[in-house]
Nucleic acid binder design. Structure first.
Length: 849
RNA sequence: GCAGAAGUGGUGGAAUUGGUAGACACGCAAGACUAAGGAUCUUGUGCCUGUAAUGGGUGUGGGGGUUCGAGUCCCCCCUUCUGCACCA
């Protein structure tokens, strides 16, 4: 009888499905709930190894908690809106809906093949009107609460997506998805006021011990709070102000000029009234071009004098105002007070244009050389600052701020790097924004009873823009306020909006009169363990935290954070292969005589560095092929065994073979001992010496596996089971009692291995006449098995291991010392005699001397 | 530049609180079974040294420190990865 995964795996998958083994009961179950969630996938129709890993980790946690007696919520769904569906529509003339739904079918099948324990009755697809109608309702309620607004602004534009990107979606100046350089465009779009929640989003991070520090740091970084002072500067000879933001008000007296971003709202007027209009326009054009091509870093600081002066609020000196290429329009106020002596950027600028450098901070002690070679940015003592002289910079910050507040030309405040979340997308396949433009009433929300604003299903894709913009039947409507003819918004929402609340919808997926029952959602949330890739550390995980707070404020839920514990799993990586710069799939490459060659041509293959598996580099392994060859259990086991979850995992075929071999060993030893298992008695008393070791090993393994699953060390849990299997192979049967010991060891292997390799373990359990494993509790430790009569005491001499002693477990400290002193360790002693003995009870003795 | 994570055999990785470094697996080597083995089983495997051993030395990126004892704690340095980056 051989292990044939292709036969047993479908059998159990069918059974789990028919019997609804993994359904969640919710509020009325009477059991403690456990919500385990893996980030839902985009239904591309194909699975990659990253998915296998992500969902295998989640499945172990889910199955473990099922078997610990929890009411487990383990749902799956589809992040189904997004660009690929539209691109496919353009290429293949298939409507996005049809393409998406058929992909969902295909992908659900792949998930079933891996044997994951989902409650499929709770499946959701974000592209269904039953889902997005509630999102439209949230949008309208947010609009009514002033949490949504429309603004024309310079935005990031991806020419490949043909749409706007949020700040978070631009990485290194390129589109996070395509890697195409992002350009700037001025466009009117809708914004969520995430900045209104910036403080809470930041503060609550301190109360989230279940999140990894690096994710919290990335969010803190992204929110980028800084405390400082807003200072008003008057224009010379005009009744107009400009405000700057600074974190160093203590350097105010060192201001020798000011710099403004060319995109600043006042810039156009200033240029208009300048006699050097042309020169300035030229500079503005140059800077804008520079900012468009954001991949250029470390460019030279340049500027142009505006011809205008500001008045220093304290000294009342004239301060020249420049346009400068390094000043960002969307950080702070878009204008900075320049203190060349104490800011490196200002220093470089001042040096280039021969502007004065005025030192107002000196180190408290130590030398200080003038003229400065670079800015002095450390804290120190204030000098050349009139009434503030002698103050330490920390005190000085406060004193200057207070003075400005008193004289009415400043206020203290905070500034965030975080921008509001621009959610308009000029695309078709997304949730329609439920707003209507009426010539008379302006922009008004659709009536709630008219929701959903449905996306047309049968559409013709011809051009590269969204067909909604040309569909009269979609955008022609009447104004919900005055009833006149009006035009519907044709932009759709960022797909990150759908993923901001899907985990709440799972709690009550079929409600019809409300987004979800508050009763159920308050019971099931927060997510107890959320598992997904680090790449979402900022975008998705920040948006979903924001959205939860909004839904709480709108009265839909009673909690303010959606995720209790977060596990960010590493990427699955593999080396790349290429010939003359063209990438090859691994199956096109063969390794012979120490060289990689292209199959067919025999050309030598260049082996590139290990990178995240990606289709563009062709360094991918198709999980379907892997499952076909080894079975789902082996695939799951490998991704869990090869590396701890947070680490990147390098793919290796040898590793897979090792896991396959292990499952075969399990299969062989269990099937060889079926009769013994069937005929065995439960062990109630400690067995005689022949069986004692394996009995102890069995219970040590039970303990270790449970502990390791709890702390997400799946690789060591699996290795512990491997040890027990190895010990079982070496175990010699003699008495009936030893048969019972072996039987218990093998039953335990089945029960413990089940969360990792569910199919083979169910099959073996059935063959051995055991009840279905999914319905059995995890095995429990018999504490008596862990008791030892003898213990190993390691003897160190001056910190080095020199001996090992087996001593009675209940030996006293005095007897251990006696035992050690009775032996001759003198040749290891520096002084020849024992000066001191240190005994760590039950573990080791260190002899010092 | 700032922030974070990490650096352990030929390889993936163990070592939960400062207490036997290298579990488990891959690879490799030897042997067994076999017509044959790329199947399976057994044994060995950090490095140096020693023809004996329960032998000696050395060893967790490098250097210093704390300690009876450091992969683990502290200080300095190097390397790699990730995120942010002219943030005022």
């Amino acid at each position: 009888m051989h292990y044939k995964p292709s036969e047993i795996e479908p059998k159990w998958q069918k059974k789990w499905n028919e019997e609804k083994t993994f359904s969640y009961n919710g509020k009325n179950s009477g059991k403690k709930k456990y919500y385990i969630l893996e980030m839902f996938p985009y239904p591309s129709g194909k699975l990659h190894m990253g998915h296998v890993r992500n969902y295998s980790i989640g499945d172990v946690v889910a199955r473990y908690h099922f078997r610990k007696g929890f009411d487990v919520l383990h749902p799956m769904g589809w992040d189904a809106f997004g660009l690929p569906a539209e691109n496919a529509a353009i290429e293949n003339k298939i409507p996005p809906a049809r393409w998406t739904y058929s992909n969902i079918e295909a992908m659900r099948e792949r998930f079933r093949q891996l044997g994951f324990s989902y409650d499929w009755d709770r499946e959701i697809a974000t592209c269904s009107p039953e889902y997005y109608r509630w999102e439209q309702r949230f949008f309208i309620e947010m609009f009514n609460k002033d949490l949504v607004y429309k603004k024309k602004n310079e935005v990031n534009w991806c020419p490949q997506c043909n749409t706007v990107l949020a700040n978070e979606q631009v990485e290194d100046g390129v589109c996070w998805r395509h890697g195409t350089p992002v350009t700037k465009k001025k466009i009117e779009q809708w914004y969520f006021k995430i900045t209104e929640y910036a403080q809470e989003l930041l503060e609550t991070l301190n109360d989230m011990p279940g999140w990894p520090d690096h994710v919290k740091d990335m969010q803190r970084n992204w929110i980028g709070k800084s405390t400082g002072t807003y200072i008003d500067f008057k224009f010379e000879g005009r009744d107009e102000n400009v405000t700057v933001f600074t974190t160093r008000p203590d350097t105010l007296m060192g201001v020798t000029f000011a710099s403004m971003a060319v995109e600043h709202p006042m810039a156009a007027e200033i240029i208009e009234r300048s006699p050097q209009k042309e020169e300035m326009n030229e500079f503005v054009g140059e800077v804008k071009k520079l900012h468009e091509n954001m991949r250029d870093d470390a460019y030279e600081k340049k500027g142009v004098f505006t011809g205008e002066y500001l008045i220093h609020p304290v000294s009342e000196e004239k301060i020249p105002l420049y346009f400068a290429n390094f000043v960002l329009a969307d950080y702070g106020t878009g204008v900075v007070m320049a203190v060349p002596a104490h800011d490196q950027r200002d220093f470089e600028f001042a040096t280039k244009y021969g502007l004065p450098v005025k030192v107002v901070i000196r180190p408290e002690d130590g030398e200080f050389f003038e003229p400065l070679k670079e800015a002095y940015t450390e804290p120190g003592v204030m000098v050349n600052s009139g009434r503030f002289n002698g103050l330490l910079s920390e005190k000085g910050k406060e004193a200057v701020s207070n003075h400005l507040v008193e004289t009415g030309c400043g206020k203290t405040g905070v500034n965030y790097r975080l921008r509001d979340w621009g959610i308009s997308r000029q695309r078709f396949w997304g949730t329609p924004i439920p707003m209507i433009n009426c010539e008379k009433c302006g922009t008004v929300p659709e009536k709630v009873e008219n929701l959903p604003v449905k996306l047309p299903e049968d559409v013709d894709f011809s051009g590269s823009t969204s067909p909604l913009k040309d569909m009269l039947e979609f955008y022609e409507t009447e104004c919900p306020v005055c009833g006149n003819k009006a035009k519907r918004e044709t932009d759709t929402m960022d797909t990150f909006v759908e993923s901001s609340w899907y985990h709440m919808k799972y709690c009550d997926p079929h409600s019809e009169n409300e987004p979800f029952s508050r009763f159920e959602v308050d019971h099931s949330m927060p997510v107890d363990k959320y598992i997904g890739g680090v790449e979402h550390a900022v975008m998705h995980l920040l948006y979903t935290r924001f959205f939860t707070k909004v839904l709480c404020d709108l009265g839909y839920v009673s909690f303010r954070e959606p995720v209790k514990d977060l596990l960010t799993q590493g990427m699955v990586c593999m080396e790349t292969y290429s010939v003359n710069g063209e990438y090859l799939y691994p199956e096109e490459v063969a390794f012979e005589n120490g060289l990689y060659r292209q199959i067919g041509t025999g050309r030598e293959v260049k082996v590139g560095r290990v990178e995240k598996m990606s289709k563009s580099k062709k360094n991918v392994v198709d999980p379907v092929k892997l499952i076909g060859k080894y079975g789902a259990d082996t695939a799951r086991l490998f991704v869990l065994f090869a590396s701890p979850p947070e680490k990147d995992l390098e793919w290796s075929e040898e590793g897979v073979e090792g896991c396959s071999r292990f499952l075969n060993r399990v299969w062989n030893i269990v099937t060889a001992n079926i009769d013994i298992i069937k005929g065995s008695k439960e062990i109630t008393e400690p067995p005689a010496s022949k069986g004692r070791d394996l009995w102890a090993k069995t219970h040590e393994t039970i303990k270790k596996v449970s502990d390791d699953i709890e702390r997400f060390h799946f690789n060591t849990a699996i290795s512990a089971i491997m040890e027990l299997v190895n010990a079982s192979y070496k175990f010699e049967l003699c008495t009936d009692e030893t048969k019972d010991v072996l039987a218990e060891a093998l039953r335990s292997v089945i029960l413990l291995l089940n969360p990792f390799a569910p199919h083979i373990t169910e099959e073996l359990a059935e063959m051995c006449g055991m009840p279905a494993v999914a319905k059995q509790k995890m095995p429990e430790v018999n504490k008596r098995a862990l008791e030892k009569s003898e213990i190993l005491i390691v003897v160190q001499v001056n910190g080095k291991v020199r001996d090992r002693l087996m001593l009675p477990a209940d030996i006293s400290t005095e007897d251990v010392e006696k035992e050690v002193r009775s032996r001759d360790y003198s040749r290891f002693l520096k002084s020849g005699e024992i000066k001191k003995l240190i005994y760590v009870p039950g573990k080791l003795v260190n002899v010092v001397g």
